[in-house]
Design a protein around this nucleic acid. Sequence first.
DNA 1: TTGAAAGCGCTAACAC
DNA 2: GTGTTAGCGCTTTCAA
Lengths: 345, 345
Amino acid sequence: MDKHSYTIAEVAKMLKVSPSTVSRAINNAPGVSDSVREKILNFVDEIGYRPNTIAQSLSRGKSNMVALILGDIRNPFYADLAFGIQKNLDTHGYIVTTFNSEYDYRKEIEFIQFAKQYHYCGIILVTVNSKEADKYINKLELPILLVNRITEHYNGSFVVTDNFQAGYIAARHLINLGHKKISFMSGHHKSSTASYQRFLGYRQALKNYCLSYNEQYCLFDLNWKMETGYEAAKKIFSLSPSPDFPSAFLLSNDLLALGFMDYCEEHGIRIPDDVSLVSFDNIVYSGLHRIQLTTVSQHVEKISSEASKVMIDLLEEPSKEPRKIIIEPTLIERNTTRAYKNAES
Amino acid sequence: MDKHSYTIAEVAKMLKVSPSTVSRAINNAPGVSDSVREKILNFVDEIGYRPNTIAQSLSRGKSNMVALILGDIRNPFYADLAFGIQKNLDTHGYIVTTFNSEYDYRKEIEFIQFAKQYHYCGIILVTVNSKEADKYINKLELPILLVNRITEHYNGSFVVTDNFQAGYIAARHLINLGHKKISFMSGHHKSSTASYQRFLGYRQALKNYCLSYNEQYCLFDLNWKMETGYEAAKKIFSLSPSPDFPSAFLLSNDLLALGFMDYCEEHGIRIPDDVSLVSFDNIVYSGLHRIQLTTVSQHVEKISSEASKVMIDLLEEPSKEPRKIIIEPTLIERNTTRAYKNAES
DNA sequence: TTGAAAGCGCTAACAC
DNA sequence: GTGTTAGCGCTTTCAA
């Protein structure tokens, strides 16, 4: 029953040494004889002394907390990311706090300032990528790492998926299946480079295969959520019928796709019989036997391990060149796509 | 472009007042004339000064960080819980750090000690509930709140679901459907009160309706994960056929159920035609049109709002009586259960 | 109402 | 190899 926490001064006094010696011993710093070090370590262990991290941080002028700012931890993609990063950084003695910006750039900026005020030692940011954030990021004196999305004027370290390629292979898959009319349902198009790059990849594929792009059936301001995917489907399928109506859809992420599917199922639109679907992320629920969503994997475990490594580098060797890591996506073919069948055939 | 963060001393000097006056002003403490206060506040705002929270914490002897220790953020139930708690506490000026114990009591204890060393001001704990943790929890001098599960000798504040009731209504639903042989697939039975209470409720229902309990088809050490549910199904369905084989299963949580379903689907066991399934949590994916899992909702948004309220109480009025909050679960009837049909009929 | 000064628990020069 | 001492940036008595 430790009634109160000891201070380093108390420990020093009990051991009849100076606080600095204790400090050196517990921090594995040089300048203590082995015998004294051992004595101190044993004693400290015995009485259960642990240095006050707050005091350490203040004295050292830096903490060991890193902030992870992302859209929404309830998105399984981010939950995986956060889990991985947290676990990796944990083993290196860092502690990470996760902040949900809810895809709102004002919250994001608030959290960035917050991290600064709290003297976090670094920031891992999945930005919503507004012009505003851009300004804040560049005038930040904290080590920062952008994950998944980069801003326009950023030239620091990042770890991202090759989203252009992701969009390209998703579209190509559909094209190879014979689809001619393919629509894109995008997350905040203007603000998210991730979504925008995927869109560009899709456009490129269309172009390369001489297919036309029909903006009428595309949506560009979706909010990455299941409900939004549901609403998107409602909107699209309530459009008056036309020969131009798409036979396949690209959805910006799996959550949107799941919502989209839900609407379809409820309204007798069969997948993949009536329309084909491809999305991005490969969250675990997409692989469920009853779901079988064809999707482009971003390899989240790879992203989180790379991001952890880069962050640790940034923290421990600040002088190093910025690291720019791009990860190749992979198409996971499952069951929401099938060969295009002409109505007349 | 603020090159460096100002200190309170610098601000004071610029304003030709003392640091204490600045401190009082920015903390809304009494003892400053309105005119001076206003002047300080305006200036501080203008130059973008923010007090160093680390220094504040050290000086005050307490921080405003609360630790949330839970099993695994990748479980959507916990993601929802964490999201809600974080959002609520955020608006009260607290910052919450989430730790994943991975259902390992040693990690849990490590995190508890950690929170102490870092001078967190409070802990919200979803314990794995080992005897070990029990000891640590009770000799803790930090405000602590147990969520979802309580330990044997705990007599502090908690917010939990009525898990006995949850188990009872789940089983009763199946019984009303005519099922006679109902099996229970449990999370760590011995260590989790949540799971154990659900099991007890189930046993009680069996008893009340004069049904027999057959341990042979129950499993008690599952690990709350999808893969584990999959393995559980494999294990059960590889048992040699018998007239006692259950026609319905209760699964400790939705993730287990999803994995269980996956195995069944893959092996031609139809749900609900061949076997009925009920589980607990009502994560969002259970409601998907293609899934339609019948489950018992714990009302996670209610849990998180109550937990937040109680934690804030604990922090701000430490003298108050412990709060003990029990939330009633609700059965969500969907599509993984159906009336029992005798093979001969 | 305001300011001076001590101190929170630790680290890191600097001296011995 | 070890100890002394001066901060880190803030809050909070206490005195004015």
